[in-house]
Lab assay of single mutants.
Amino acid sequence: LVRYRTISKIPQITLNFVDLKGDPFLASPTSDREIIAPKIKERTHNVTEKVTQVLSLGADVLPEYKLQAPRIHRWTILHYSPFKAVWDWLILLLVIYTAVFTPYSAAFLLKETEEGPPATECGYACQPLAVVDLIVDIMFIVDILINFRTTYVNANEEVVSHPGRIAVHYFKGWFLIDMVAAIPFDLLIFGSGSEELIGLLKTARLLRLVRVARKLDRYSEYGAAVLFLLMCTFALIAHWLACIWYAIGNMEQPHMDSRIGWLHNLGDQIGKPYNSSGLGGPSIKDKYVTALYFTFSSLTSVGFGNVSPNTNSEKIFSICVMLIGSLMYASIFGNVSAIIQRLYSGTARYHTQMLRVREFIRFHQIPNPLRQRLEEYFQHAWSYTNGIDMNAVLKGFPECLQADICLHLNRSLLQHCKPFRGATKGCLRALAMKFKTTHAPPGDTLVHAGDLLTALYFISRGSIEILRGDVVVAILGKNDIFGEPLNLYARPGKSNGDVRALTYCDLHKIHR
């Protein structure tokens, strides 16, 4: 019993810090008490220290592992850092350059016999395009090294910054494609005289377009951006097909006994025919423009016929181009109408809503002055909100995010209106959640004399007048207030005048 009563005193000691020596009952000389009392004092002292730490809000209350900052290894790049964003855009520009100039170089340097010394005699450094290609190869190699040090988000939505895990993730992902696209074939085969082989191998750079397509997928929600990307894709495919079309004609031209190829026909049409040795002929500019003209006309199913396939190889390629053109029509131009419709969806919704308003007016036989006010209010409210119901949009977000959005939407009023000066951010967040926005066209009466005042109004834009009878008592403008002081009276009061809008007004109100 003594032991039980001794232990039962522990909660009292913990909360009230009572010393055991003052209790005459606990001072009985028993061996059990002498053993338990020192333990009680020690526990009391420890609990006292913990309570003191909690009340003082000291940093040592938290466990040590929670006080440590997340460790980022040296030379690790955050995937959302500004440097990584700028670097990704730079790589994107280099990939676009590669997609345009690599097929052009591979096709127009394929057994090209233009006048001038061969590239091997001039030297590697004197070729501007080769120098640019070398810079692109170096940048792609540097990009691989950067990807080995860039964080990523795993399946659990955690940012991984450990170098080993980053390397394994990159090896399992895009490393092989990036490595093949970054191989400097110019340096590996330079001086061997195989410019045709170098041009063909350099087309491996186009593998990076797969990554670019995935990154550009984030802009699919913007109709104008999608339309622009589709047109660029169409032009890029036409450019690639033009390079292939020229390569076919250029390879067949020296081996044909009869002059029936499209390059021969082009030379005869523009007065620059090929001679018996295969030299001469149109310039590279004429060849490229004509090839691009043929691919565009074939892809769009126009086909004027002034550039036509004559050999079997050219006919087979033309059939493939027609098939590609039909697929592009289905996948690209078939979506253009939907994209344009999405661009004008706001206008369509406006006309639909206006039609419903006019049908309501016609069905209920609203008189002319009231009908005009109804239409003007709808037009003004639509121009202010673009038909978007803010309350319906915010309803799907958590309250903390709703408060931040409301604070942002009402920031101008909260910053410049005098009653809100000096208020804490928590108070402003709470008030912003209570605001209701209303609009009024010129001549609209917001409050009639004798109406119950259940709200306090803040003028965000425009001006109003307060009338008693036919006498203008006051004219209020931006950041002015009218209405009933909230919670100042037990019952809502009545208006002693009319409140009429002089201009288009936007008002925020808080109800009782």
Rank of each mutant, 00 (worst) to 15 (best):
A348V: 13
R342E: 08
Y293S: 01
V226T: 13
T445E: 07
T113D: 05
A449L: 07
E375G: 03
V131C: 08
C417F: 09
Y293I: 01
I405F: 01
G334S: 03
I141E: 03
R208S: 13
V160S: 01
K111S: 03
Q68D: 05
M322S: 02
G267E: 01
E64F: 01
N335Q: 15
D444M: 09
C417N: 07
I339Y: 03
Q379V: 07
C232W: 01
G199M: 08
E115L: 14
E115D: 05
L197C: 11
N335C: 03
H239I: 01
M231H: 05
H439K: 01
R214S: 05
S297E: 01
K272Q: 01
R356E: 15
G305Q: 03
A338V: 14
E376P: 01
P367C: 05
V100M: 01
F108L: 01
P82C: 15
A440V: 12
T300H: 08
A119Y: 07
L227Q: 03
L207D: 01
F171H: 01
G173D: 04
L94P: 07
I144A: 01
G191W: 04
L187S: 13
T385K: 03
I189M: 12
A99E: 01
L187F: 11
Y274V: 03
N265F: 04
Y377E: 15
S192W: 14
T424N: 14
I270S: 01
V86G: 05
G280F: 01
V131S: 01
F108G: 05
I146N: 01
S331I: 07
V142D: 01
W382R: 03
G303M: 01
P117R: 14
S383L: 08
P442F: 01
L90N: 01
G261W: 01
H351N: 05
L409C: 03
E158C: 05
R71F: 14
D186Q: 10
H416D: 13
A403M: 05
D257W: 01
R356M: 14
G303V: 01
S276K: 15
S105G: 01
L414Y: 10
T347R: 10
A235Y: 01
L94C: 15
F360W: 01
T233C: 15
C400A: 10
P163D: 01
N391P: 05
V180Q: 01
L374D: 01
C400G: 10
L145G: 05
F378T: 13
R205Q: 01
V131Y: 04
L92W: 07
L323C: 05
G173I: 01
T385H: 15
R356P: 03
I270D: 01
A238V: 03
L78C: 04
K287C: 05
A432T: 04
S412N: 10
T438P: 01
K285Q: 13
P184R: 05
V321S: 01
G422Y: 01
S283Q: 01
S345F: 03
V393W: 08
L93N: 01
L207G: 15
M179F: 12
R358K: 09
S308Y: 04
V95G: 01
H264Y: 12
D404N: 03
M322L: 03
L227G: 01
S161C: 13
D286Q: 01
L207V: 13
V210A: 09
T438K: 06
T233W: 09
I198N: 09
Y384F: 06
V180P: 08
S412T: 13
P367I: 01
R349T: 11
S337I: 03
I198Y: 10
L67G: 07
A338T: 04
L200Q: 03
T295I: 11
R358Y: 03
L230G: 04
R356K: 15
D88P: 01
E64S: 06
E252C: 01
L413D: 01
N265R: 14
Q415Y: 11
E359N: 08
H380P: 01
S276P: 05
W87N: 01
E157R: 14
I388M: 08
A213I: 05
G443F: 01
I138Y: 04
Y170T: 01
Y246A: 01
I324S: 03
P309F: 01
R373C: 03
Y80V: 09
N312M: 01
F435K: 02
F304C: 10
C232R: 01
P282E: 01
A225C: 11
K84R: 01
T300E: 01
L374E: 01
G305M: 01
L279F: 14
L145K: 01
L201K: 01
A182C: 13
I135A: 04
I96G: 04
L374F: 01
G426M: 03
A182K: 01
I177G: 01
I340L: 04
R356C: 13
L241P: 01
Q365G: 08
T445I: 08
E359R: 08
G422P: 04
R362W: 01
L355W: 09
P309V: 01
V226E: 14
F363N: 04
W174I: 01
V95I: 13
G173P: 01
E252L: 01
A167Y: 01
K202S: 03
G325M: 01
H380A: 14
Y384T: 06
L446P: 02
L206P: 01
G303Q: 01
I339E: 03
Y350E: 01
Q365T: 04
Y246Q: 01
I96H: 01
L409D: 02
A348I: 06
A107V: 04
M433F: 08
M179R: 01
R342L: 13
P398E: 01
H416N: 09
L94M: 14
T150L: 02
H73F: 07
L229H: 03
S326M: 14
N391Q: 14
Y246W: 01
L355M: 12
E121P: 14
V160C: 10
H439Q: 15
H380N: 08
W75T: 04
G305I: 01
Y288R: 01
H448E: 07
L200G: 04
S194M: 13
L93R: 01
Q379C: 05
F228N: 01
V212D: 04
T295Q: 01
V131N: 01
M390S: 05
I332E: 03
F294L: 01
L90S: 04
A242Q: 01
P367K: 13
A181F: 01
R165C: 11
L266R: 01
P184N: 04
A99R: 01
A125D: 01
V307Q: 01
G173E: 01
W262L: 01
V447K: 01
G281A: 01
P398M: 01
D143C: 01
H448S: 07
R349Y: 12
E375R: 05
S308N: 05
V131G: 01
A291F: 01
S383G: 08
D257R: 08
L187H: 15
T150F: 01
E359F: 02
M139S: 07
A125W: 15
L266Q: 01
R211D: 08
P441I: 10
A403N: 04
C427E: 04
I388D: 13
A338F: 15
I248Y: 01
S81C: 04
V159E: 04
I324Y: 03
A235W: 01
F175G: 05
T300M: 04
K84H: 01
Y384I: 15
D143W: 01
L355Y: 06
Y104G: 01
S283L: 01
A291Y: 01
R165Y: 07
E64T: 04
Y274G: 01
Y104V: 01
F360G: 03
I332K: 03
L197R: 04
R74E: 04
L209Q: 01
I366G: 02
L197K: 07
Q372G: 10
Y246F: 01
F397K: 01
E376L: 11
Q269I: 01
L229C: 09
K395R: 13
H264V: 04
E158L: 05
P419T: 09
L109T: 07
R342Q: 14
L343H: 05
A167L: 05
I332L: 08
H408P: 01
G123T: 06
M251A: 13
A107G: 01
P128E: 03
E112I: 07
A224S: 05
L323G: 03
S161A: 09
I144K: 01
F190S: 13
R211C: 01
S161T: 12
V336I: 06
H416I: 03
L188V: 13
W75M: 12
I340M: 07
F140P: 01
S220I: 09
R356G: 08
V136I: 14
A106N: 03
